[in-house]
């Protein structure tokens, strides 16, 4: 049992670092994912991840495998897309999903163009799939800072974000906080994805956000509990994924996300809130 669960982390420094990394990611991505899901933005995270990719690639081209350059590149590209799409959606008649699709496609194409202009044969595997087993101190610090920042900002903006999700018309009628808090939230999504891509890669980082949130929806109807379950699923998936990867030798990033996917599948089947099993088991209706 020790060898199975504790040993890998006790013995190897890189496993301990990976553990800290995935736990920090889970704590930050859990609540962000829940809000994304409740705001019907589950696919927006994926679009945003595509938007970050070219920014990170350009950073990589300019300075090599440099934490600072890739982070800044990703943040700039992500913010530009998030703010541009958010602004167009609020200033014109266009819905946010369409605006986001337009902006991220432009960003993606621009990124591919820039990379090919340089003509170098860039190894983008790092950006695509991350290196959770090779997190250095600076990267860990970045991930932990992002999670801390995320929790602090969400604590401050929780009320307008929830209110805007439930009844946007009402929030508009009592306050101007709706639009700014939405943009800050989009910025949080981008920041968390940039933190996540160092460990899991841009595309898989979304999985740490959305799969735990989607799984949590099958276990509770209560908002605070949703966030709790989501963080729990994210962190447990991270740990289990690392262990699976360690013992079986499969790449760790996909292993973590697949474990989260397994948690989602179990939730769909056995979750007490609208899960399949409960639906298929005919039970007598209640008296009132």
């Amino acid at each position: 049992m020790y060898d199975l669960l504790i040993g890998p982390f006790a013995e190897f420094d890189f496993m301990r670092r990976a553990l800290v990394g995935v736990l920090a990611l889970g704590v930050g991505a859990g609540p962000v994912g829940v809000l994304m899901m409740l705001r019907r933005m589950s696919l927006a995270g994926d679009a945003m991840a595509h938007a970050i990719l070219p920014g990170a690639a350009v950073g990589f081209l300019a300075a090599g495998l440099n934490l600072f350059a890739m982070t800044v590149g990703g943040l700039v590209a992500g913010f530009a897309v998030a703010l541009g799409a958010g602004a167009v959606a609020r200033a014109t008649q266009m819905k946010e999903d369409a605006a986001l699709a337009a902006f991220y496609l432009i960003s993606l194409a621009l990124g591919v163009l820039l990379v090919s202009l340089r003509g170098s044969n860039v190894d983008l595997l790092h950006v695509l799939f991350g290196t959770v087993l090779a997190l250095d101190d600076a990267t860990l610090l970045l991930i932990v800072s992002i999670s801390t920042l995320t929790l602090a900002v969400l604590a401050l903006l929780w009320r307008p974000l929830v209110l805007e999700s439930v009844d946007p018309g009402f929030l508009r009628s009592v306050s101007r906080a709706g639009a700014p808090s939405h943009l800050v939230f989009l910025a949080l999504v981008v920041t968390n994805l940039v933190g996540g891509f160092h460990a899991l890669g841009t595309l898989l980082a979304v999985g740490m956000m959305m799969l735990p949130a989607a799984a949590a929806r099958f276990w509770t109807r209560e908002l605070t509990a949703l966030v709790g379950v989501s963080v729990l699923v994210a962190c447990v998936s991270g740990v289990v994924g690392l262990l699976v990867s360690y013992h079986s030798g499969v790449p760790s990033g996909p292993a973590i996300i697949l474990v989260a996917g397994g948690a989602y599948a179990l939730s769909v089947l056995f979750g007490p809130v609208g899960g399949l099993l409960l639906r298929l088991m005919p039970r007598r209706h209640l008296e009132a």
Partner: peptide, 18 residues
């Protein structure tokens, strides 16, 4: 048609409290 998202996990008390 109030834009309330009725699938959102919020109860009567919290909605009124807004």
């Amino acid at each position: 048609a109030a834009e309330v998202d009725r699938s959102f996990p919020i109860d009567v008390y919290d909605l009124v409290a807004m």
